[in-house]
Simulated assay, not measured.
Amino acid sequence: MSDPSNKLKESEKILKEVIDVLHDGQLGFAHIGEHVKDEQLKRYFLAESLKRASFRGELENELHRDGVHDIKSEGTVSGTLHRTWGDLKAKLGFSDHQLLETAEQGEDAAKKVYADALSQDLPLPVRQLLTEQQSHILTSHDYVKSHRDALVAK
């Protein structure tokens, strides 16, 4: 029989990993939204940044319900490097297409962390929440990818 405290710690670790990637996405989308030239994409990225913040809040609430109150998210090292590279691209005047490539790479990381999390044995409410969030992440990835591809076609 598994130890409930070990299962809780494993669940906490998994949720913190997702929260870190959401933190990366929140900052990355806000940054790209500030630099992309297309107004529709600008609004989309800023809205997605807020959506990532909302997702983080939902997961942090789950951790609070489990008695975890010390939740510090600084994102991931790879996310920080990714944002720095995106910042450099923006400062060098890279195109919307290149910024969308950067966003898609970030979404690939989010897709992976959600898939990894959902492959674990998690409590049903957490699993349902992650599944709903994952659905949005997948749709967002496809949106970014299709707009990136459309810019190539122009």
Rank of each mutant, 00 (worst) to 15 (best):
2 S>P: 12
2 S>F: 13
5 S>E: 09
5 S>M: 12
5 S>W: 13
5 S>H: 11
11 S>A: 13
14 I>D: 01
16 K>C: 06
17 E>P: 02
20 D>W: 01
22 L>S: 06
23 H>I: 01
24 D>V: 08
28 G>W: 07
28 G>Y: 06
32 I>K: 05
34 E>G: 08
36 V>R: 05
37 K>V: 12
40 Q>N: 14
41 L>P: 05
42 K>I: 12
43 R>N: 15
47 A>M: 12
49 S>R: 02
50 L>Q: 13
50 L>D: 11
50 L>I: 06
53 A>D: 10
56 R>D: 01
58 E>A: 03
61 N>H: 07
63 L>R: 01
67 G>F: 07
68 V>K: 10
68 V>Q: 09
71 I>W: 02
71 I>Y: 02
75 G>M: 03
76 T>R: 09
78 S>M: 09
79 G>L: 05
84 T>A: 10
84 T>F: 10
85 W>M: 10
90 A>M: 01
92 L>T: 02
95 S>M: 03
96 D>E: 05
97 H>T: 11
97 H>A: 13
98 Q>H: 09
99 L>P: 08
99 L>T: 06
104 E>W: 09
104 E>Q: 13
108 D>A: 02
112 K>L: 05
113 V>P: 00
116 D>K: 05
117 A>D: 05
118 L>A: 02
120 Q>G: 00
121 D>H: 14
122 L>Q: 03
125 P>V: 04
129 L>T: 14
129 L>F: 02
129 L>V: 03
132 E>A: 12
133 Q>E: 04
134 Q>N: 06
141 H>L: 01
144 V>K: 11
145 K>M: 06
146 S>N: 12
146 S>T: 15
147 H>L: 07
148 R>G: 02
150 A>Q: 12
151 L>A: 06
152 V>E: 08
153 A>E: 10
